[in-house]
Design a protein around this nucleic acid. Structure first.
Length: 422
RNA sequence: GGCGCCGUGGCCGAGUGGUUAGGCAGAGGCCUGCAAAGCCUCGUACAGCGGUUCGAAUCCGCUCGGCGCCUCCA
């Protein structure tokens, strides 16, 4: 199995199965409902986990919830904790609605404070970090490999509004002293405060996966500074940390960037309501995980048509697939988890068993389920069949209209009729 | 200013030097009382300009266009 790795800018081979694959995915900061783009790393992580399990690996997936940071403080001055709790719940509910199950662990930053403090203490002790004004900063100059993940050149970094406490504008906060109006804080050797943004992931990854793990995932927009800083902290503290970095491409609205300030953000919650989970999953399947994907009525409608196409296969007879078909599907996924290619392979299948197995990898087994019409609709269809037999086509058409009005489509078949939801 | 990604037929989207991607939409046909579904047929695309090569969507350069990041956006 090969995957594209941001750090080495090339494909990396996963160790052969069986064996452990430990995955860490950067989850959301909870201050509002997540949008459809935020769902992408969750979906990709869950798919990859399912696939690796299918291939015989012992997979552990950790996806964190960031429930303390500036965004939350700003969104709910004075009661950020209430908002964070509410938004965490939304996040669980909304992703639950995708039908992909849950990661193995979903730690929250606020539940990992002791580990965070301990890690910072190590860094301070070894000279990789320093306390200043109640804050603690990472000393970027001490970490020679800084910038390798993101390709940023330290001397070119912009320097908008450096904290007066920093020795070097590139330094970043590991711990921040409590400020006026912040309603959550914890004790630390440096006084009351709360963790910086990046340190939590270093601490949570280690807590659940150990000092080194196989795959780190997250959105492309996290490469710098978030992941660069995670890596710097953990490696400075002597941990190997992530061996491979997968950064998913961002979701865009056609012709316009999705932006909260423009107000064109579609929440996962609303998109599930409008299109259903299957269409969302197939939509994500149509683009390679590492590339950007356009969200629009047109692209969603195309995904919905594919969903219907798969359902249609299960309404017909199962026809055994040719030998080697599963291997073609497998080869597509082993090749950098190429889901568009895998989709193309699946579209040729009429083998119910095989197709169901493939769909299940992506949380789409529901497409194989029969959709039975209620008895009263079946009765209408039966009457229509009688009318047709009597060649009373006016009555037959009237009944079809009635059936359609009830949300079903009557199809004539050689041996009777079929009812399909519309 | 710096780092990086991308530009394929109406739309989406695979494809890393030479054989049909696939899907959606569309056209015609078969089938049907009429339909639907299904099946068959139909599209020689690769931003532009140069270059390398027997041969390039695929390698190199430049240009144009879209996008991300540059200390707290997945």
């Amino acid at each position: 199995m090969q995957l594209y790795d941001t750090l080495t800018r090339g494909r990396q081979e996963l160790p052969p199965a069986p064996g452990p694959i430990r995955m860490y995915t950067c989850g959301p900061t909870v201050y509002q409902r997540i949008h459809i783009g935020n769902a992408r790393p969750f979906v990709i992580s869950m798919w990859l986990r399912r696939w690796l399990a299918e291939r015989g690996y012992d997979v552990t997936l950790v996806e964190n919830i960031t429930d303390v940071n500036d965004k939350i403080y700003n969104a709910a001055p004075g009661h950020s904790a209430v908002l964070a709790a509410q938004a965490s719940q939304w996040y669980i509910e909304d992703t639950e609605g995708l039908g992909l199950g849950r990661p193995d662990h979903e730690p929250k930053a606020t539940e990992t404070i002791p580990e965070i403090v301990a890690l910072i203490e190590e860094l301070v002790r070894d000279g990789y970090a320093y306390e200043a004004g109640g804050d603690v900063y990472f000393r970027v100059a001490r970490f020679a490999d800084y910038g390798r993940l993101s390709g940023q050149r330290p001397d070119q970094l912009e320097d908008d509004d450096p904290s007066p406490f920093k020795e070097d504008p590139r330094d970043f906060a590991l711990w921040k002293a409590t400020k006026e109006g912040e309603d959550t804080s914890w004790d630390s050797p440096w006084g009351r405060g709360r963790p910086g943004w990046h340190i939590e992931c270093s601490a949570m990854a280690e807590k659940f996966l150990g000092p080194s793990f196989e795959i780190h995932l997250g959105g492309l927009d996290l490469v710098f500074p978030h992941h660069e800083n995670e890596r710097a902290q953990s490696q400075a503290a002597g941990r190997e940390f992530a061996r491979l970095w997968m950064h998913n491409g961002l979701l865009e609205f056609v012709g316009e960037k999705m932006s909260k300030s423009i107000g064109n953000v579609a929440s996962l919650h609303d998109v599930i309501e409008e299109w259903g989970p299957e269409t969302i999953l197939v939509f994500f399947l149509t683009a390679h995980w590492s590339k950007p994907i356009d969200f629009s009525d047109e692209t969603m409608a195309a995904a919905a048509a594919r969903v219907e196409g798969f359902r249609e296969v299960f309404r017909g007879p199962s026809e055994p697939a040719a030998a080697g078909e599963w291997e073609r599907f497998q080869a597509a996924l082993e090749d950098d988890f190429n889901t568009p290619e895998a989709l193309a392979v699946m579209h040729g299948w009429r083998d119910h068993e095989l197709l169901r197995r493939a769909l299940d990898i992506f949380g789409l087994a529901s497409l194989a389920e029969r959709q039975d019409a209620p008895p009263e609709i079946v009765e209408l269809a039966r009457q229509r069949q009688e009318a047709r037999a009597a060649r009373d086509f006016d009555e037959a058409d009237r009944l079809r209209a009635e059936i359609e009005a009830a949300g079903w489509e009557a199809r004539d078949a050689a041996d009777g009729f079929q009812l399909v939801p519309r």
